[in-house]
Design a binder for these strands. Structure first.
Lengths: 210, 210
DNA sequence: ATGCCACAGTAACATAGGTTACATTGAAAA
DNA sequence: TTTTCAATGTAACCTATGTTACTGTGGCAT
């Protein structure tokens, strides 16, 4: 029995389902900063996150990208869910933020379990619900917040999901994820530092308050 | 038997399900510009759209609002779906754009059918998939497009869902839906008119090309 | 016909954020 | 230690969009 599966999902799935997952799922360990899914990919199996953090990106036709949200332990990517079901291509890119452990579940099992297990149906629907809310929160950020507020939110979100009070990123990387420019990020970070909200160091940023 | 139910869903749902829907659903006819769901509402039954167009809005804490997307014939609001299931409050506002006809389905039936009917499961999952993609398209618009491009896209989307080549809105109303100001909308509409893409008239705008 | 008023046009200005260019600095490599 | 270079700081400028304020106008009500 895969230990993380039992630890993370024993209160979510009934025992029979956990056993089935244990039998058919493939365990994978993937290093930090690794591209798991690219836009346009066909999805053959559904990932279930056991540990670590995954970043989900959206990209436009010019290659500009934007961070949509983070996936944490216990999450699954609803985008991938619907790609599995709908036989359609991925609309997003998934990149590991930290080292991750995950289970890959064959698509046909997904369908089978939808009919068979109440807990699986609840899980799938709940994943969609969570993801939908997450994308809407992203809409809120872009539509209603100014760049300095978005930047601070980004830093706090990143600290939350990684459980580290310190962000190890260059300004350029942050700029890509927020779809702005390095100069703007540097400018606003300095402003946040002057306000006493963060401390700037080379290659990492410390949040003063969480 | 509700005629629109049969007409719209005979290829989507198996006959038994259509009969069940016909028995338990309540038929409603609602006039144009009517608020169906407000942010914070508890949802007791799930709406199924038979005809007409519904607008879905997001709002921030200052009361600023933003159009997320339109619902058309055959759609259901996935937000509502997940509110039903998760017992949570609505995160969005729903307003009729045209007169609409819809069926209200009790929540407990939804759950029951998830176990019983393959076609219902497919429908629910497909709704989530579509809605998720729609919100992501909204993210794209806000993140990657300039206001004049967003404006033109808005006009085209509205023309598409209403099947009318002419938009009957004041500049102020458009400004609210795009979360910008009336002056900006007027300015950019004039620019689009000069480019030959639209024709401006009092209280309505005609799209030259679709 | 006349007055009223919501709607639209437009100028002038303010500001956030994007762009270019260059200086400074910390840390790793030689 | 010295060199090197990615990372950061910062000034100066540009553009899109938001804001304020005022004008013009079509159509309805009296």
């Amino acid at each position: 029995m895969i230990q993380e599966l039992k630890d993370n999902y024993k209160d979510v799935f009934e025992e029979g389902l956990i056993n089935e997952i244990n039998q058919v799922a493939t365990f994978k360990e993937i290093p930090e900063n690794f591209k798991i899914i690219e836009i346009g990919d066909y999805i053959k199996s559904m990932p279930l996150l056991l540990s670590g953090v995954i970043k989900i990106f959206r990209e436009d036709t010019n290659g500009d990208e934007l961070l949509l949200y983070f996936l944490e332990n216990g999450d699954t990517c609803a985008m991938t869910l619907s790609c599995c079901i709908g036989q359609s291509r991925s609309e997003i890119r998934a990149v590991t933020e930290t080292q991750v452990k995950l289970l890959m579940i064959p698509v046909q099992k997904m369908e089978e379990w939808m009919a068979k297990y109440t807990s699986w149906r609840a899980f799938v629907l709940n994943s969609y619900h969570t993801r939908l809310n997450e994308v809407m929160e992203t809409v809120d950020s872009i539509a209603f917040l100014k760049m300095d507020e978005r930047l601070l939110k980004y830093l706090k979100d990143k600290a939350r999901v990684t459980h580290i009070n310190s962000i190890h990123n260059t300004h350029q990387e942050i700029a890509y994820e927020l779809h702005t420019s390095r100069v703007v990020v540097s400018r606003l970070l300095k402003k946040l530092e002057n306000m006493g909200k963060i401390e700037l160091n080379r290659n990492h940023i410390r949040l003063v308050e969480l």
